[in-house]
Design a protein around this nucleic acid. Structure first.
Length: 220
DNA sequence: GCGACAG
DNA sequence: ATCTTGTCGC
């Protein structure tokens, strides 16, 4: 039991925004982690015409990246998808899946943004604050921010900027393939986050953690 | 007011 | 997110 699940099921857009404004100040943007032996990936999928949310968490040994545990959890979908409020739709199910783990990961890579968010509280940061574990945001597309063109070679990256502030990095995770967006989730710095994301990459665009979670969350 | 907009 | 087979390119 590592989560603090006090999510209300029917909160309004304004209430959600207030929660984000308050939690943003609890996000820790510097390294505060132990020796990393396990890295996890989390993601959600939907069933029954979006009525059911299926969350999955995959724990891999680090740095070998072998799958050592996985859990899934199903709950009724209780919040719509609204850009900027993704966490309210996905976190309830994620907390339930994470609670089932017997191996607590040292870092969690989330599908979505960390502080690269209008109020600096994307799903990775929100989840990290709730369960008090280091998290990293790994998104497949841009929510906010601007950046220079990223060289085509794997490993190249450019800072993601919003309001003169560095909110993340646009990383070429695979040569000649569309980049991914990495940002601080909680209890980790951007350089360290980038290092871990790169350490979880093999021959695909997405890190192994995310690939496992994706597969488990969408499996029927 | 007009677009943009994680999954 | 999800619907979906083969196909073009490195």
């Amino acid at each position: 039991m590592i989560s603090n699940n006090d999510f209300s099921s029917n909160l309004s857009y304004e209430e959600a925004k207030i929660i984000q404004q308050q939690l943003r100040h609890q996000v820790i943007t510097k390294d505060q982690l132990q020796e990393v032996n396990y890295v996890a990936g989390v993601d959600v999928g939907f069933k029954d015409n979006y009525k059911i949310t299926q969350a999955a968490v995959a724990v891999l040994k680090f740095p070998s990246l072998e799958l050592v545990e996985n859990q899934i959890a199903l709950i009724p979908t209780n919040f719509p998808y609204i850009p900027g409020f993704l966490s309210f739709r996905e976190i309830p199910a994620l907390l339930k899946a994470i609670d089932k783990l017997t191996i607590i990961p040292d870092i969690i890579l989330c599908d979505g943004q960390g502080i690269a968010h209008p109020r600096r509280l994307g799903i990775a940061s929100h989840l990290g604050v709730l369960i008090d574990l280091p998290t990293i945001g790994v998104a497949k597309s841009l929510l906010i921010g601007k950046h220079e063109e990223v060289p085509l070679e794997k490993g190249s990256w450019k800072p993601l900027i919003d309001k003169k502030e560095i909110i993340g990095a646009v990383l070429r995770s695979r040569t000649n393939v569309k980049p991914i967006y990495v940002s601080i989730g909680h209890k980790i710095s951007l350089p360290t986050a980038l290092n871990f994301v790169m350490a979880c990459l093999t021959k695909y665009r997405l890190p192994e953690t995310t690939r496992w979670a994706d597969k488990l969350a969408s499996d029927k």
